[in-house]
Protein backbone atom coordinates (compact mmCIF):
# COMPACT_ATOMS: atom_id res chain seq x y z
CA UNK A 1 0.00 0.00 0.00
CA UNK A 2 2.82 2.41 0.92
CA UNK A 3 6.13 2.05 -0.88
CA UNK A 4 9.34 4.08 -1.04
CA UNK A 5 11.98 3.33 -3.66
CA UNK A 6 15.42 4.82 -3.12
CA UNK A 7 13.77 7.94 -1.78
CA UNK A 8 16.08 10.90 -1.21
CA UNK A 9 15.48 14.44 -0.06
CA UNK A 10 18.37 16.86 0.17
CA UNK A 11 18.14 20.28 1.84
CA UNK A 12 21.04 22.63 1.08
CA UNK A 13 23.36 19.74 0.33
CA UNK A 14 22.42 17.82 3.48
CA UNK A 15 20.41 14.63 2.97
CA UNK A 16 17.34 14.58 5.20
CA UNK A 17 16.21 11.26 3.71
CA UNK A 18 18.88 9.08 2.16
CA UNK A 19 18.07 6.22 -0.22
CA UNK A 20 15.05 5.05 1.73
CA UNK A 21 13.45 1.82 0.58
CA UNK A 22 10.37 0.79 2.48
CA UNK A 23 7.19 -1.19 1.94
CA UNK A 24 4.11 -1.22 4.12
CA UNK A 25 1.60 -3.90 3.07
CA UNK A 26 -2.15 -3.24 2.99
CA UNK A 27 -3.82 -3.45 6.39
CA UNK A 28 -0.55 -3.15 8.30
CA UNK A 29 -0.09 -0.77 11.23
CA UNK A 30 3.46 0.35 10.68
CA UNK A 31 5.57 2.47 13.01
CA UNK A 32 8.27 4.74 11.67
CA UNK A 33 10.68 5.15 14.54
CA UNK A 34 13.62 7.41 14.92
CA UNK A 35 15.08 10.20 16.98
CA UNK A 36 14.34 13.84 16.22
CA UNK A 37 15.91 14.82 12.92
CA UNK A 38 16.03 11.25 11.64
CA UNK A 39 13.97 12.16 8.55
CA UNK A 40 10.56 10.82 9.61
CA UNK A 41 8.60 13.99 8.95
CA UNK A 42 10.41 14.62 5.66
CA UNK A 43 9.52 11.08 4.54
CA UNK A 44 5.91 11.71 5.49
CA UNK A 45 5.82 15.05 3.66
CA UNK A 46 6.97 13.25 0.52
CA UNK A 47 4.42 10.48 1.04
CA UNK A 48 1.62 13.03 1.38
CA UNK A 49 2.71 14.98 -1.69
CA UNK A 50 3.55 18.15 0.22
CA UNK A 51 7.17 18.12 -0.96
CA UNK A 52 8.82 16.45 -3.90
CA UNK A 53 11.71 14.01 -3.53
CA UNK A 54 15.15 15.03 -4.75
CA UNK A 55 15.40 11.56 -6.26
CA UNK A 56 13.66 8.22 -5.98
CA UNK A 57 9.93 7.81 -5.70
CA UNK A 58 7.19 6.93 -3.29
CA UNK A 59 3.91 5.24 -4.05
CA UNK A 60 0.54 4.99 -2.39
CA UNK A 61 -1.65 2.18 -3.66
CA UNK A 62 0.72 1.85 -6.64
CA UNK A 63 0.30 5.52 -7.62
CA UNK A 64 3.44 7.59 -7.67
CA UNK A 65 2.88 10.50 -5.32
CA UNK A 66 4.94 13.11 -7.20
CA UNK A 67 3.15 12.51 -10.49
CA UNK A 68 -0.37 11.85 -9.13
CA UNK A 69 -0.60 14.11 -6.06
CA UNK A 70 -4.34 14.73 -6.28
CA UNK A 71 -5.29 11.07 -6.74
CA UNK A 72 -2.95 10.09 -3.89
CA UNK A 73 -4.33 12.75 -1.55
CA UNK A 74 -7.82 11.39 -2.15
CA UNK A 75 -6.66 7.99 -0.91
CA UNK A 76 -4.88 9.07 2.23
CA UNK A 77 -5.63 10.79 5.50
CA UNK A 78 -2.86 12.83 7.09
CA UNK A 79 -2.28 14.40 10.45
CA UNK A 80 0.89 16.47 10.78
CA UNK A 81 2.90 16.71 13.97
CA UNK A 82 2.06 20.37 14.50
CA UNK A 83 -1.59 19.98 13.62
CA UNK A 84 -3.46 23.25 13.18
CA UNK A 85 -6.90 24.38 12.15
CA UNK A 86 -8.74 27.61 11.47
CA UNK A 87 -9.02 29.18 14.91
CA UNK A 88 -12.18 31.15 14.20
CA UNK A 89 -14.12 28.08 13.09
CA UNK A 90 -15.59 25.33 15.28
CA UNK A 91 -14.44 21.71 15.04
CA UNK A 92 -17.51 20.91 12.97
CA UNK A 93 -16.93 23.86 10.62
CA UNK A 94 -13.28 22.88 10.15
CA UNK A 95 -14.29 19.32 9.27
CA UNK A 96 -17.07 20.63 7.03
CA UNK A 97 -14.54 22.67 5.04
CA UNK A 98 -12.23 19.68 4.86
CA UNK A 99 -15.02 17.39 3.67
CA UNK A 100 -15.98 19.88 0.95
CA UNK A 101 -12.38 19.98 -0.27
CA UNK A 102 -12.53 16.19 -0.57
CA UNK A 103 -15.60 16.68 -2.72
CA UNK A 104 -17.91 14.94 -0.27
CA UNK A 105 -21.61 15.50 -0.72
CA UNK A 106 -24.40 15.62 1.81
CA UNK A 107 -23.16 12.43 3.45
CA UNK A 108 -20.44 14.56 5.04
CA UNK A 109 -22.83 15.72 7.80
CA UNK A 110 -23.26 12.17 9.06
CA UNK A 111 -19.54 11.44 8.72
CA UNK A 112 -18.58 14.56 10.70
CA UNK A 113 -21.01 13.65 13.46
CA UNK A 114 -19.66 10.10 13.60
CA UNK A 115 -16.01 11.25 13.70
CA UNK A 116 -16.57 13.92 16.34
CA UNK A 117 -18.11 11.22 18.51
CA UNK A 118 -15.21 8.87 17.77
CA UNK A 119 -12.59 11.40 18.92
CA UNK A 120 -14.66 12.65 21.85
CA UNK A 121 -15.39 16.12 20.51
CA UNK A 122 -19.13 15.79 20.00
CA UNK A 123 -21.09 18.70 21.42
CA UNK A 124 -18.02 20.97 21.56
CA UNK A 125 -19.23 24.21 20.04
CA UNK A 126 -16.40 26.58 20.90
CA UNK A 127 -14.01 27.82 18.22
CA UNK A 128 -10.84 25.80 17.63
CA UNK A 129 -8.80 28.83 18.75
CA UNK A 130 -9.89 27.94 22.27
CA UNK A 131 -8.91 24.26 22.00
CA UNK A 132 -6.10 22.66 24.00
CA UNK A 133 -3.30 20.98 22.06
CA UNK A 134 -4.81 17.62 22.91
CA UNK A 135 -8.21 18.64 21.54
CA UNK A 136 -6.57 19.84 18.34
CA UNK A 137 -4.77 16.50 18.08
CA UNK A 138 -8.10 14.68 18.44
CA UNK A 139 -9.59 16.88 15.75
CA UNK A 140 -6.52 16.12 13.63
CA UNK A 141 -7.29 12.41 13.85
CA UNK A 142 -10.90 13.09 12.85
CA UNK A 143 -9.71 15.13 9.88
CA UNK A 144 -7.35 12.35 8.84
CA UNK A 145 -10.30 9.95 8.71
CA UNK A 146 -12.93 12.19 7.12
CA UNK A 147 -12.50 10.92 3.55
CA UNK A 148 -12.61 7.19 4.39
CA UNK A 149 -8.92 6.87 3.46
CA UNK A 150 -7.26 3.64 2.39
CA UNK A 151 -4.18 4.66 4.34
CA UNK A 152 -3.69 7.10 7.16
CA UNK A 153 -0.39 8.75 7.96
CA UNK A 154 0.04 10.18 11.43
CA UNK A 155 3.09 12.21 12.39
CA UNK A 156 3.79 12.08 16.16
CA UNK A 157 0.11 11.53 16.94
CA UNK A 158 0.42 11.32 20.73
CA UNK A 159 2.80 14.23 21.19
CA UNK A 160 0.26 16.44 22.93
CA UNK A 161 -2.23 13.95 24.28
CA UNK A 162 -3.00 13.36 27.93
CA UNK A 163 -3.24 9.73 29.20
CA UNK A 164 -6.94 9.56 28.36
CA UNK A 165 -6.21 11.00 24.92
CA UNK A 166 -3.49 8.43 24.35
CA UNK A 167 -5.85 5.61 25.35
CA UNK A 168 -8.51 7.00 22.99
CA UNK A 169 -5.93 7.32 20.21
CA UNK A 170 -4.94 3.65 20.60
CA UNK A 171 -8.59 2.64 20.54
CA UNK A 172 -9.17 4.66 17.36
CA UNK A 173 -6.12 3.22 15.60
CA UNK A 174 -7.18 -0.33 16.46
CA UNK A 175 -10.70 0.44 15.25
CA UNK A 176 -9.33 1.83 11.97
CA UNK A 177 -6.91 -1.08 11.55
CA UNK A 178 -9.72 -3.57 12.14
CA UNK A 179 -11.48 -2.06 9.15
CA UNK A 180 -8.48 -2.88 6.95
CA UNK A 181 -7.01 0.62 6.72
CA UNK A 182 -3.25 0.80 6.42
CA UNK A 183 -1.74 2.97 9.12
CA UNK A 184 1.69 4.59 9.19
CA UNK A 185 2.58 6.16 12.52
CA UNK A 186 5.72 8.19 12.94
CA UNK A 187 7.08 8.68 16.42
CA UNK A 188 10.20 8.88 18.52
CA UNK A 189 8.33 7.36 21.47
CA UNK A 190 8.96 3.65 21.16
CA UNK A 191 6.46 2.57 23.79
CA UNK A 192 3.66 4.32 21.93
CA UNK A 193 4.52 2.75 18.60
CA UNK A 194 5.00 -0.70 20.10
CA UNK A 195 1.50 -0.62 21.58
CA UNK A 196 -0.34 -0.04 18.33
CA UNK A 197 1.96 -1.12 15.51
CA UNK A 198 2.43 -4.63 14.19
CA UNK A 199 5.75 -3.78 12.55
CA UNK A 200 8.17 -0.92 12.46
CA UNK A 201 11.05 0.63 10.62
CA UNK A 202 13.89 2.47 12.29
CA UNK A 203 15.14 5.62 10.68
CA UNK A 204 18.42 7.27 11.63
CA UNK A 205 20.20 10.05 9.75
CA UNK A 206 17.73 9.68 6.91
CA UNK A 207 18.46 5.99 6.42
CA UNK A 208 16.30 3.01 7.21
CA UNK A 209 18.58 1.03 9.51
CA UNK A 210 16.18 -1.79 10.33
CA UNK A 211 12.62 -2.91 9.78
CA UNK A 212 10.41 -5.87 10.53
CA UNK A 213 8.14 -7.21 13.24
CA UNK A 214 8.96 -6.43 16.86
CA UNK A 215 10.52 -9.87 17.45
CA UNK A 216 12.66 -9.53 14.34
CA UNK A 217 13.81 -6.09 15.34
CA UNK A 218 14.63 -7.15 18.89
CA UNK A 219 16.57 -10.17 17.67
CA UNK A 220 18.52 -8.26 15.04
CA UNK A 221 19.05 -5.29 17.33
CA UNK A 222 20.44 -7.55 20.03
CA UNK A 223 22.92 -9.02 17.49
CA UNK A 224 21.45 -12.41 18.50
CA UNK A 225 23.69 -12.36 21.59
CA UNK A 226 22.44 -13.63 24.90
CA UNK A 227 23.70 -12.43 28.26
CA UNK A 228 23.58 -15.06 31.03
CA UNK A 229 24.09 -14.27 34.73
CA UNK A 230 25.32 -17.12 36.97
CA UNK A 231 25.60 -17.16 40.76
CA UNK A 232 27.14 -20.21 42.49
CA UNK A 233 27.80 -21.34 46.07
CA UNK A 234 31.41 -22.37 45.25
CA UNK A 235 33.89 -20.80 42.82
CA UNK A 236 33.36 -21.56 39.16
CA UNK A 237 35.94 -23.11 36.84
CA UNK A 238 36.69 -21.63 33.39
CA UNK A 239 33.73 -22.17 31.09
CA UNK A 240 34.12 -23.46 27.55
CA UNK A 241 31.59 -23.42 24.70
CA UNK A 242 31.75 -22.71 20.94
CA UNK A 243 28.93 -20.17 21.45
CA UNK A 244 30.70 -18.35 24.23
CA UNK A 245 31.74 -14.81 23.34
CA UNK A 246 32.91 -13.50 26.69
CA UNK A 247 32.93 -14.41 30.37
CA UNK A 248 33.45 -12.02 33.26
CA UNK A 249 33.89 -13.37 36.77
CA UNK A 250 33.36 -11.49 40.05
CA UNK A 251 33.20 -12.06 43.79
CA UNK A 252 35.91 -14.66 43.79
CA UNK A 253 34.33 -16.47 40.82
CA UNK A 254 31.00 -16.85 42.66
CA UNK A 255 29.33 -14.65 40.05
CA UNK A 256 29.76 -14.55 36.28
CA UNK A 257 28.37 -12.61 33.33
CA UNK A 258 28.47 -14.73 30.20
CA UNK A 259 27.86 -13.39 26.67
CA UNK A 260 27.02 -16.04 24.08
CA UNK A 261 25.72 -16.12 20.58
CA UNK A 262 22.88 -18.45 21.63
CA UNK A 263 21.20 -19.39 24.87
CA UNK A 264 23.69 -21.91 26.45
CA UNK A 265 22.13 -22.08 29.91
CA UNK A 266 21.61 -25.87 29.73
CA UNK A 267 25.20 -26.43 28.58
CA UNK A 268 26.54 -24.23 31.38
CA UNK A 269 24.40 -26.02 33.98
CA UNK A 270 25.80 -29.37 32.84
CA UNK A 271 29.40 -28.08 32.90
CA UNK A 272 29.00 -26.67 36.41
CA UNK A 273 27.29 -29.84 37.63
CA UNK A 274 30.15 -31.95 36.25
CA UNK A 275 32.63 -29.67 38.07
CA UNK A 276 30.67 -30.16 41.30
CA UNK A 277 29.70 -26.50 41.55
CA UNK A 278 26.36 -25.86 43.22
CA UNK A 279 24.30 -23.33 41.27
CA UNK A 280 22.40 -20.62 43.18
CA UNK A 281 20.90 -18.98 40.08
CA UNK A 282 21.23 -19.12 36.32
CA UNK A 283 19.36 -16.45 34.30
CA UNK A 284 19.33 -15.26 30.72
CA UNK A 285 19.01 -11.49 30.34
CA UNK A 286 16.37 -10.50 27.79
CA UNK A 287 17.42 -7.34 26.01
CA UNK A 288 15.31 -4.29 26.85
CA UNK A 289 13.57 -3.13 23.71
CA UNK A 290 14.51 0.49 24.40
CA UNK A 291 18.16 -0.58 24.60
CA UNK A 292 17.85 -2.45 21.34
CA UNK A 293 16.55 0.62 19.58
CA UNK A 294 19.13 2.84 21.17
CA UNK A 295 21.77 0.45 19.90
CA UNK A 296 20.40 0.97 16.37
CA UNK A 297 20.68 4.71 16.74
CA UNK A 298 24.13 4.54 18.28
CA UNK A 299 25.40 2.16 15.64
CA UNK A 300 24.25 4.54 12.93
CA UNK A 301 25.74 7.53 14.71
CA UNK A 302 29.08 5.77 15.00
CA UNK A 303 28.94 4.84 11.33
CA UNK A 304 28.14 8.44 10.46
Amino acid sequence: MIRCEHLCKVYHGVPAVDDLCLEVPEGEVFGLLGPNGAGKSTTILMLTGLIEPTSGACYIDDLEVATHPIEVKKKIGYMPEDVGFYPTLTAEENLEYSAKLYGMGKERKERIKELLALVGLEGVTKEVGGFSKGMRQRLGIAKALINHPKAIILDEPTANLDPQGVADYRRIIRHVADQGTTVLVSSHILSEVSKVCTSAGILAHGKLVAHGTWDELARIGGDEKVVIHIETRTPMPDLQSPALVAAEFAENRHRARIVATVDIRDELADTLAEAGVAIRSLEAEHPDIEDVFLSYYHTTEEAA
Binding site: L50, P80, Y102
Partner: peptide, 10 residues
Protein backbone atom coordinates in the same frame (compact mmCIF):
# COMPACT_ATOMS: atom_id res chain seq x y z
CA UNK B 1 -0.29 25.43 11.35
CA UNK B 2 -3.29 24.95 9.10
CA UNK B 3 -1.33 25.25 5.85
CA UNK B 4 -0.08 21.66 5.93
CA UNK B 5 -3.56 20.41 6.67
CA UNK B 6 -5.02 22.55 3.87
CA UNK B 7 -2.45 21.40 1.32
CA UNK B 8 -2.92 17.75 2.31
CA UNK B 9 -6.35 17.94 0.65
CA UNK B 10 -6.66 16.96 -3.00
Amino acid sequence: KSLKILLSHP
